[in-house]
Design a protein around this nucleic acid. Sequence first.
DNA 1: TCAAAAGTGTTCCAGATACACCCATGT
DNA 2: ACATGGGTGTATCTGGAACACTTTTGA
Lengths: 210, 210
Amino acid sequence: MKLLVIHRGFEPEMGKWSVVGGFLQADESPEDSAARILKQQTGLEGVYMQQLKAFGDPKRDPMERVLSITYFALIDIDQYTEQLSEEYNPEWFLLKERPELIFDHNKMVEAALKKIRYMAALHPVLFELLPEKFTLPHLQALYTAVYDFEFDKRNFSRKVLSANLLIKQKEKDKEGSKKGAYYYMLDKSQYKDKLQSFLNFVPSPNNFLL
Amino acid sequence: MKLLVIHRGFEPEMGKWSVVGGFLQADESPEDSAARILKQQTGLEGVYMQQLKAFGDPKRDPMERVLSITYFALIDIDQYTEQLSEEYNPEWFLLKERPELIFDHNKMVEAALKKIRYMAALHPVLFELLPEKFTLPHLQALYTAVYDFEFDKRNFSRKVLSANLLIKQKEKDKEGSKKGAYYYMLDKSQYKDKLQSFLNFVPSPNNFLL
DNA sequence: TCAAAAGTGTTCCAGATACACCCATGT
DNA sequence: ACATGGGTGTATCTGGAACACTTTTGA
């Protein structure tokens, strides 16, 4: 699980590591603004973003009063390698090894991680991240990355399949192993109904919501 | 379950029903601002508020560009009757029978209700709303109000008590019935630990998260 | 033939649900 | 005595958790 950061392009703290960010324009909604700024600074486009929280402490930027309405997105790095532009030197860091960020950006990242874990424990949002065809070991690796926890593959597959969201394919992925793992695809019709539903995708004794 | 609204005190839409709201001052955090405005317009003070969402559509206020960072709070009306001041004619409406609100304030209320139901299904947040001593029928009535759903009292009491958050008192409340219902108090020591924990306070077949 | 990853089944337990009767007491 | 609301117990079922062996096949 990685975090995309950029070298800040203006003062103060120019050149230091920062979350992607910029200024809202007069006729722009916050969502549109977030999408525009993301594209300008990283090249990424067509990414589904969610509003996280507004940060507004009067002293959070020591130079002037700034309010930040933050958004986060989850993407599969591999599906966006083409798009990533170099203009602001965006860089992926392992979340655990990320550099110190300016201002309150560390708090933002922590809050986003917490929200992602919360959401993903209850809703099948992580399924969307994978390529069209993916294997169960692949999906499990994703959950392991998000929760930093090893899931039991027997229980994992039973739980995931019981949601009836996946359709088993006939082909196997032979990349990861000699035996090969069956591909699955999302059942889009089921998916929309169940996205909001109330499933525990994470074993309960592990209280990830703290 | 009721909603507190005020008569808007300035143009545009002056005098119409509106959620409590005002303008952020230069040296004020959004939280402080929300608390100040709430106090000015309703007299309510010391109320725990939570950030909901920032609303920023460029056309949401037809006169000028306004961004709103919204907060919500849950209180027990009875515990705050003294505080409620009349300056802005604040008024409690049954949530289901609330009047039409200005701008996108209806959306705000819907979003807050959704978030409250979501939170309360997983965390014992509603317990905080009651007076220091309360009865199980009282608590159950609160859940009924929030979810607009009749809970089975046998299952309800079992579930609530199994969280080990409540301490049974020796006295009974004789207001509501002839037999009287035992008072309970929150176990504050347990409470902090379990507030974040991952309980299902609402029967699962009822999918309140939609 | 062996190493490496995939796939699968069973038992046990906790928690959820549905459901009905007795208790205490003020009138 | 009776009406009103409070309190409790049981059977059943579903879903979660723990756990180990067999299968496939490329090297």
